[in-house]
Design a protein around this nucleic acid. Structure first.
Length: 297
DNA sequence: ATGGGAATAT
DNA sequence: GATATTCCCA
């Protein structure tokens, strides 16, 4: 019964590309449409000679596809929470690939964008008593956000922010804003903060270092001195932008980059972090894998 | 509306 | 049982 998030269902029915057909898809492709948009500057002979891989030919159709794809992505950034990375990726490889390549380098929609707007506000739709109106589908699935998984990276960011804020100012909302993580809600932070505080408390109780064996996550990120005990971190001023965190979101899974050090008293098993993306693809983009994680713990 | 914490849920 | 969400109240 333990129901884990199913990413499958929605998408199938939700797939914009399929149910919406645009003109250019309907009409027969014209010659112009099929005409390659670009030509190689390198003669075929030379190309082969130097083993230069030819750039895939793109036609207007490809372009339209790509742009539509992009549009729909922009339009429904959070339809079903964050699980899109996967669902999209699994659709149809052959076809999708072209599009991907084409729009590669595109930025993930950043709702946290410059000013720090939000995407929260999507809350549960409660039945208004009465009759009819049903949440159609625009943003209906909104009700249930997948469980947020606090990855080490995410937690680190959290800790950093809290540290820079000082215990005084470290309140959920502020933390959330400073963390600047796409899709992170105040509740998420509040909850985590609650736990973190307990951890800290329990921690100084034991005076010396002795991370309980159960504090997997927390133990993974050292508690900054600014938090060790004293409050305020000597920062009496209002904190404006202590640490400009890049807008983006959190890295990804956990590749096998094990470091010889840190043989601390970690559990004998491997980290559970691989399981992380069972619910959601935080980075929300498929290219995350390529990016190197620059965070250390 | 927000923070904090207890109660639930997964 | 750990961990995250939701409910409740100050």
């Amino acid at each position: 019964m333990g129901e884990e998030v199913r990413i499958t269902d929605y998408d199938v029915s939700n797939d914009d590309d399929d149910d919406r057909v645009s003109e250019w898809e309907l009409g027969l492709p014209t010659v112009h449409d099929l005409m390659p948009l670009s030509q190689s500057l390198v003669p075929a002979e030379l190309a082969t000679a130097f083993s230069i891989s030819p750039v895939p030919h793109r036609t207007m159709i490809d372009v339209n596809r790509a742009s539509q794809n992009t549009l729909s992505n922009l339009k429904k950034p959070f339809n079903n929470g964050f699980s899109n990375g996967l669902s999209n990726g699994f659709k149809s490889f052959g076809e999708e690939r072209a599009d991907e390549m084409f729009i590669e380098g595109e930025e993930t929609v950043d709702l946290t964008g410059g000013d720090g707007s939000d995407l929260r506000k999507l809350r549960r739709v409660d039945s208004g008593g009465g009759g009819g109106g049903e949440e159609a589908d625009s943003s209906a699935r909104t009700s249930k956000r997948p469980r947020l998984v606090w990855t080490p990276q995410l937690h680190k960011r959290f800790v950093d922010v809290v540290a820079h804020l000082g215990v005084k100012n470290a309140v959920p909302k502020t933390i959330m804003q400073l963390m600047n993580v796409e899709g992170l809600t105040r509740e998420n932070v509040a909850s985590h903060l609650q736990k973190y505080r307990l951890y800290l408390k329990r921690m100084q109780g034991l005076s010396n270092e002795g991370p309980s064996s159960s504090d997997h996550l927390f133990a993974s990120t050292p508690v900054p001195q600014s938090l060790q005990e004293s409050s305020g971190n000597g920062n009496g001023n209002s904190v404006q932008i202590p640490m400009p965190y890049p807008p983006h979101m959190v890295p990804m899974p956990y590749t096998q980059q094990q470091q010889p050090q840190m043989v601390q008293a970690f559990e004998s098993h491997s980290h559970p972090f691989n399981m992380m993306m069972h619910q959601r693809d935080w980075s929300g983009n498929k290219y995350a894998y390529q990016h190197r994680m620059t965070n250390d713990k």
